[in-house]
Amino acid sequence: MKVISTQLYNQNYSANRKSYNSKNTTAPQFTGKYDQFTEWIANNYYKRFYNSKFAKSFINNTKGKKWNNMTTHMSALGSTLISGMYIVRTLQNDKLDVEKRKTLALNDLMVWALSTLGAYFMDAKLGNWWNGVTTRFTANYLMDNKKAKRVRTLGDWDPANINDMMNNWHEKVNARIDKINEAIKSPDYKGARKPLEKVEAAAYKNVRDFNLDVLKNRKLTTLIDGMGVLKSLFVFGMVYRYIVPVLVMKPANMIGNYYHKKQAEKAQAAQEAQQAK
């Protein structure tokens, strides 16, 4: 029986993809130059970046788990830069009087602070729930991609029971190893004679690690990582661009306008009363 390892499967997958991409090339000359350009970027941007002092310093100073989700931090950094630019431009706007500039700049600052805190809070709060969603996605992926289930090693298991498999995979593997070791003792057996060592018990906390160590499907790793990025980008996008500007700022402006109107009415009434005296 021919054994197809996951690695071999993934190699075939990427080779097929490369060949598919090359078959779809309509303008080879352009593709060649474009490829040279991307090679130049790989060498002059990415390679230099990974080798830079910044990368070294960054890695050494961000060892805590709170730094693991860089998508959120980069999204926050981008928004901070844009908000900072708006605040500086507002403060430098000669068409507005000084008090108005300060009020608007403070408003921008408050919106940025509220959005950033809100986005980090929501992203953290959704963490465990999203972990479950990612597990559900993985189970569905495995339903359609039987090779990714690693049936030859784990047996034909139901992806609906992926949580059970993440905790007890070693029992299944060891049960199979026991049977193989029994079989090896048989005089009829013609394969390798060295008995297999059992694997150690280990429960996986998340499906990404389970896939990396046990299923070893590269495409699935990319998709699981994509799920994490999807969550973070949507949370930050929703908070910065929708929840705060629409659902918070609009009612806040309405309340502010109402308050200003009432204040103006009071001031006018006071002025009229003073004039009457």
């Binding site: 559900r136 992806p159 609906a160 429960a203 996986y204 998340n206 990404r208």
Partner: peptide, 25 residues
């Protein structure tokens, strides 16, 4: 990073240790 025979490299939420039900597929 292996602690108490469980694996979590820290990308996703914390592990509750509870037995989880079958996933809806």
């Amino acid at each position: 990073h292996r602690e108490n025979e469980s694996v979590n490299r820290g990308y996703y939420g914390s592990f509750t240790g509870k037995e989880k039900a079958a996933v809806n597929v």
